[in-house]
Design a protein around this nucleic acid. Structure first.
Lengths: 157, 157
DNA sequence: TATTCACTGGGCAAAGTGACCAGTGGATGC
DNA sequence: GCATCCACTGGTCACTTTGCCCAGTGAATA
């Protein structure tokens, strides 16, 4: 789906001040309220904006340790491993990737010691051949989308 | 920060129906409006809820390819590399991890072919010794937080 | 030329918001 | 035992925003 400049400004504005209302947005952007409303409906209908869920900080919840685990899966065991990992709350994200039948998952834990428990639970299923874990120290670029939105909006001018 | 059962229910409710208002939440949860309001203020003040930014789907924006790149950095060049990667819109996320002075970054691209351009741009700076990239095929567990919130809430009953 | 489409600017009732208030019950400290 | 603190309740208030409607305009398209 193509995004124009106004769409881009709407998304960026939403990202910067999420609690802003449609009326206030229309004032800031200098367009009619109905326009903003229609654009937002379209963006959501097209799946560009998936939702407005609360961004929860795992660290504030007591899970300050983040790690990425690369898993090597035995042929044909992928489905079982996926289902297993989905049941572990500390698995925040799971991807299957190219390479030697690998998966990559994002984990959190209460401490470095606790991470051992999480990993034990993660690998506690048939089908995982090998797991290698990298603990996150810093997060210089937290998950972001604004630069990409701006680029996408410019390309459709 | 400790989270109790009511906090947990508030977050889960918000995650499921993000556009819900304080009044409607208080009705669903069976508590007074002021209580929900006070809890939300506290959750945000404590950083548990970071915000309510729109969740934008890169695929819908025209970037359907996701990849993770592991970068090996030459000693002492970390700062420069970080700054460089922050300027690349396709870099959605960057972590420094344990291991041999490594970084892990999440990339998106318009196609597999376009990924080459993105990677060239990523590694186009002094200080990156080696980059290995894994392309994401499936995403069986998209970034989620609800199970963790529920676990954290139960532990504080 | 006729039609379609996005946008404007306006108006309406209904609902939600932020801000208050007094009252209640439980836990804590003296 | 008693006073104090705190979170919660249930209510009010003025104000703003929402969702929904409308007719009119200008640009692009058939």
């Amino acid at each position: 789906m193509a995004i124009d400049h106004l769409d881009g400004r709407i998304i960026v504005l939403l990202a910067r001040e999420p609690r802003i209302g449609v009326l206030e947005m229309s004032r800031r952007l200098g367009v009619a309220r109905g326009t903003v409303q229609a654009r937002m409906d379209r963006l959501q209908a097209n799946g560009v904006i998936r939702g407005f869920g609360p961004e929860v900080d795992p660290a504030a919840l007591g899970y300050p340790v983040t790690a990425f685990a690369t898993l090597q899966i035995r042929q044909g065991q992928g489905a079982g491993v996926r289902a297993h990992l989905a049941t572990v709350p500390e698995v925040l994200e799971l991807h299957t990737t190219t390479g030697t039948g690998d998966m990559l998952c994002r984990l959190v834990a209460r401490s470095n010691a606790d991470l051992q428990r999480v990993i034990d639970r993660v690998v506690g299923i048939e089908g995982i051949v090998r797991a290698s874990t990298a603990i996150v120290m810093e997060n210089p670029v937290p998950l972001r989308i604004i630069p990409l939105v701006e680029q996408a909006a410019e390309e459709e001018e």
